[in-house]
Computed example of a mutant assay.
Amino acid sequence: MSYKQKLSVEEKVQIVQEYLKGRIGMNEAARRSGVRRQSFNGWVRNYEADGVDAFLPHKNRIYSPELKRAAVEEYLSGIGSLSEICKNIIFGVPYSSGTGFRCIMLMETSTPKNTQEVEAT
């Protein structure tokens, strides 16, 4: 397997934009990028959510307990799917398997162990 050097931010943006404008298909975009289709699809989702910033280095996001609780409450009430809640409330980016896992972990750490104890306080 040959090694392909990483693409610059500008190159990634150009390929994603060509794909979104319908100038190239998913297979061609992934080939030009040197990544698998699934990875390129993740690039597209992230780009649609964050624009060029999706390809810039960033620190992990920190979410307040209030935001986490709101996400848990919406999920438990059935207002939205895990995907929709991760996208709209917590992350602001489309759902991916990694995002879904992080969202579930946030929900588990935000959900009170003893609901009666929390309601009493």
Score class of each variant (00 low, 15 high):
residue 96 S to V: 01
residue 68 K to W: 10
residue 46 N to K: 04
residue 110 S to G: 15
residue 101 F to N: 11
residue 12 K to F: 07
residue 16 V to D: 10
residue 82 L to E: 13
residue 120 A to L: 12
residue 102 R to M: 10
residue 59 K to W: 11
residue 115 T to V: 15
residue 9 V to A: 04
residue 29 A to E: 09
residue 62 I to R: 12
residue 41 N to S: 15
residue 22 G to L: 04
residue 84 E to R: 06
residue 13 V to E: 15
residue 102 R to K: 08
residue 77 S to I: 01
residue 121 T to W: 09
residue 114 N to M: 11
residue 2 S to W: 11
residue 35 V to F: 14
residue 1 M to V: 08
residue 40 F to D: 04
residue 86 C to Y: 03
residue 85 I to K: 00
residue 51 G to V: 02
residue 105 M to T: 13
residue 38 Q to C: 05
residue 47 Y to T: 01
residue 111 T to I: 12
residue 45 R to W: 02
residue 109 T to F: 03
residue 121 T to L: 12
residue 96 S to W: 11
residue 82 L to F: 04
residue 87 K to Q: 14
residue 98 G to E: 15
residue 22 G to K: 06
residue 86 C to K: 00
residue 120 A to T: 15
residue 42 G to V: 11
residue 99 T to Y: 09
residue 83 S to H: 01
residue 34 G to P: 11
residue 59 K to I: 03
residue 72 V to E: 05
residue 41 N to C: 02
residue 3 Y to S: 03
residue 15 I to L: 11
residue 67 L to C: 07
residue 28 E to W: 09
residue 75 Y to T: 00
residue 42 G to M: 12
residue 78 G to N: 07
residue 99 T to K: 07
residue 67 L to I: 10
residue 64 S to Y: 07
residue 107 M to K: 00
residue 112 P to L: 02
residue 114 N to R: 05
residue 98 G to K: 09
residue 60 N to P: 07
residue 97 S to G: 03
residue 87 K to S: 13
residue 40 F to A: 00
residue 79 I to V: 13
residue 108 E to H: 04
residue 86 C to I: 00
residue 110 S to P: 08
residue 36 R to C: 07
residue 38 Q to R: 12
residue 98 G to D: 14
residue 60 N to Y: 14
residue 110 S to T: 10
residue 47 Y to H: 02
residue 97 S to Y: 09
residue 94 P to A: 04
residue 58 H to F: 11
residue 112 P to G: 04
residue 78 G to E: 14
residue 8 S to M: 08
residue 119 E to A: 08
residue 30 A to T: 09
residue 91 F to V: 13
residue 37 R to P: 05
residue 30 A to Y: 15
residue 68 K to S: 07
residue 25 G to D: 15
residue 30 A to D: 12
residue 9 V to D: 13
residue 54 A to Q: 05
residue 102 R to W: 12
residue 64 S to C: 05
